[in-house]
Design a binder for these strands. Structure first.
Lengths: 189, 189, 189, 189
DNA sequence: AATGAATGAGGTTTCATTCAT
DNA sequence: TATGAATGAAACCTCATTCAT
């Protein structure tokens, strides 16, 4: 990828994640990236296009990371564990982007419809397939696949967002284990 | 409450939930409410104050509903069930508001800090207390209370948001049961 | 008409005629009119709409003036004389507007198509009808009506524009008579 | 002249005549000419210089053509006929340029002052001289030379522009004769 | 010499907010 | 008290021009 485009993407993620894309001006993005305003428009159609591109860029990286980490695992339980771990690690290493993503993602239907679809294809469906495989093997209960996948996403994402917003960092210990346990065995003793 | 203030709140929720508060003008809120723009400023300090008030208004209603429904229950498991049920029913009956709330809530730290605190006090903490009680009685595992509470919120809220965004309605059957099962017993057989 | 709208129209004509509409900013129009920029947009859709409205406004006034002055004349020769006189007087009394009109009118086809049509309907056709009547009565030669009407317009308008641009005023004497003579009897002795 | 400069001039005339110079970007001129943007600035100071050069270039060609065609004629009437004919033929063969010229020429005083003077020197004065000679010989009436010359220009130019704008071509027959007749003998029978 | 990526001043337009009626 | 015309700051985006390659 073009070096200048990468500069812009990184600057935009940083600054959007601090103030939100609506509260940030293109001027600020340009300054943060150390380029002229016009340069942003050479690489992205408009502000919405920039936001879109950031979402796609991040989701693609996360998805690639997940796939890399779980492609050689067969056991659905281990696969799901790997997925949770990868998500947590990715978010932890991409603090700003993570906040940005969680907040902009549930935007308004038509605005980034293309991206939301992409997210579903690359993310929800990925999880749905693992769960479906686990149901098939008898490892998982016969739950509604869609509900379970979305529940897993909500569980993990909202926890990450919660800790980032209120403590500026994930709890140092056991978040992984806690989430695994809640996900696999639930609250009851 | 002033009748006109209620008109404005209801109109604002409706229209904000369709297009997002950032994409909606005060003019549009005024028209939808059937009042003059100036009248909105008689009841709310400014646009941010209006958004804030809507969030508080909705959260208060939800919380009141939950408390009403579970205050006479002693068993932590039943209490949590009641909470999940009440949330789902409330969201289902307040379709627009629900979407608005989920989207605006994870806004940007300083913007609605007051409201986010309120939400935590009235909502997360409420759940934390129930879980803590359940841990006390031995009904629940010795999980991290905060993580578990937030996981529950994420699980429920993101599912609701997901179905509202992609299907415009909650699944007709079993969402309650599915979420209860995932929450209490997890995925594993 | 709204008093503020009139202020804007007059200011816009003044300033557009000095620098051309493309070289003038809405800010300048607002300042000249003594109103806020936003006020212009309450009365006109956008800059193009403003230019359009000015053209229509002026043409309508000119046409009304012409019709008022020649409606009671039957003789085609006198009618055409009245028309030439009225145009010269109107332009002379509306110095700025005249320059503005001549320059913006021959703009680019699709830009003000509606207005150009209006000008033709209200102006060229008006002249064509007088000439046609004169041909009928035998006062005028059997010329191509359209060519003759446009020639008359060009003769008068370009002279007015010429003198306004190069001398800032019409020649003090005889322009009327000179144009009448050229129009009716031509150059030859 | 430099081959590349000619490419640029021709491309610029083409594209300016379609959309107007204000609505055309240097980028578009460069693309149409098949050169880089920078190359245009090697041959012209800036955009205004380019427009200026086009006007001068065209006027010079037209003037040269006229002079070539009438330099051997002595009779003022025939001379003026030759001038009208040459103008019509030149415009007819340079459709785009003609529209461009007519529209940009009556621009704003200080913008192309140099060019407007040039046009006057090369064009109006040329006509004034012929008319003056005709008055001298007794062929023409004792009209105001300046008014008559400008009237002739307006008559011819506005007709050409009119037909180009509304019919995309000059009338197939008799325009020359009609204009000669109007110019020399006027409308009256 | 030729290019086109980069720039940033400057333009149009929107919209939260005010205030005279 | 209620209104909505008026305001002008501020945002997005364009494009003439420059300059490193």
């Amino acid at each position: 990828m073009d070096a200048k485009k990468k500069q812009i993407i990184e600057a935009a993620i940083d600054i959007f994640s601090k103030k939100g894309s609506a509260e940030t001006t293109m001027q600020e993005v340009a300054e943060e990236a150390g380029v002229g305003k016009g340069t942003i428009y050479r690489h992205f159609d408009n502000k919405e296009g920039l936001v879109s591109a950031l979402i796609k860029f991040g989701i693609d990286e996360l998805t690639a990371e997940i796939i890399k980490n779980i492609k050689d695992i067969d056991d659905p339980v281990k696969k799901l564990e790997g997925l949770i771990d990868t998500k947590l690690e990715f978010y932890n290493q991409n603090h700003s982007f993570c906040k940005f993503l969680m907040r902009e993602l549930w935007g308004y239907k038509d605005k980034f419809e293309e991206n939301i679809r992409e997210v579903r294809m690359n993310h929800t469906v990925l999880i749905e397939e693992i769960i479906a495989a686990g149901v098939e093997t008898g490892d998982f209960k016969e739950v509604n696949i869609e509900t379970a996948a979305v529940a897993l996403i909500g569980m993990v994402n909202i926890n990450v967002l919660h800790y980032f917003v209120f403590s500026d960092a994930l709890p140092e210990q056991n978040l992984k284990e806690d989430l695994r346990e809640l996900c696999f065995e639930g609250l009851l003793t």
